[in-house]
């Protein structure tokens, strides 16, 4: 866990692509994309049907490690609005156990707009929490400090001939984009014009490693 502050609030960035908010004992994650594999399987690409399990196991571990009380999902929690119907029964049960145990909020995204939250938790479009706006996709017109997901930012570098690629946060003074958390979620280059446009100038890619935060300036 690497401490860092955003808009006057203290957070911990977790290398597992999540954010912990100690003041609220809240975990924030974005883009879980549950049941992505089964969505592809319908089309004939039989991806391993374990992605929901893997994502859930990671969430459970984080909850245990941080002793979180709240959990906020910043949208695209299911890969599609029917995803929840395809979720295997035991995965559903594990998810329900989590939503029961925690104060759980689903913020809807573009993939799961019609998502009904049938596994517990409350479903909302966006929220303002202690002065921070939480929504799925960054809004360039937003003037308040904002946390969002949607873009799946990833830092890709070639160092001494070897390609390194890592999920990352993208931050400016008033905007913070979280990496995708889901086990099968791909990524968009952190310096991609769409991301830079969404957060504005002077953006940095943030990569938590064991004991510190690495910062990489992104070209505007």
């Amino acid at each position: 866990m690497v401490p860092f502050s955003f808009s006057g609030h203290k957070f911990f960035a977790l290398p597992q692509a999540a954010l912990f908010w100690p003041a609220r004992r809240a975990l924030l994650v974005a883009d879980l994309h549950f049941e992505k594999a089964s969505w592809f399987a319908r089309l004939g690409q039989m991806l391993p049907p374990y992605d929901s399990m893997a994502t859930l196991a990671d969430l459970e571990a984080l909850v245990a490690a941080t002793d979180a009380r709240e959990l906020w999902c910043l949208g695209d929690s299911f890969h599609d609005s029917d995803g929840i119907d395809r979720m295997p029964a035991d995965a559903c049960a594990r998810l329900e156990a989590l939503t029961e145990k925690l104060d759980w909020t689903w913020i809807t995204g573009n993939h799961d707009a019609a998502f009904a939250g049938r596994c517990g938790g409350r479903v909302i479009d966006e929220a303002e929490v202690d002065g921070l706006v939480l929504r799925h996709e960054a809004d360039t017109a937003e003037t308040r400090p904002e946390l969002s997901g949607h873009f799946h930012p990833k830092l890709r570098l070639t160092v001494r001939g070897k390609r390194v690629s890592r999920r990352c946060f993208v931050a400016t003074e008033r905007k913070l984009i979280l990496p995708a958390f889901g086990a099968l979620t791909g990524g968009l280059d952190a310096g991609h014009p769409e991301i830079v446009r969404a957060v504005g100038p002077d953006a940095e890619a943030l990569v938590p490693v064991s004991d510190r935060m690495l910062r990489f300036p992104l070209a505007a």
Binding site: L157, V159, R160, G161, K162, V164, R166, L214, R215, P217
Partner: peptide
């Protein structure tokens, strides 16, 4: 020589950041 396969990514990222820091 190029770095071999299998070196820990973290080390490379840290190296890249420090180079970027010097350059910037």
């Amino acid at each position: 020589e190029h770095v071999a396969q299998g070196i820990v990514d973290d080390e490379l990222l840290i190296e890249a950041e420090s180079l970027a820091a010097i350059a910037m």
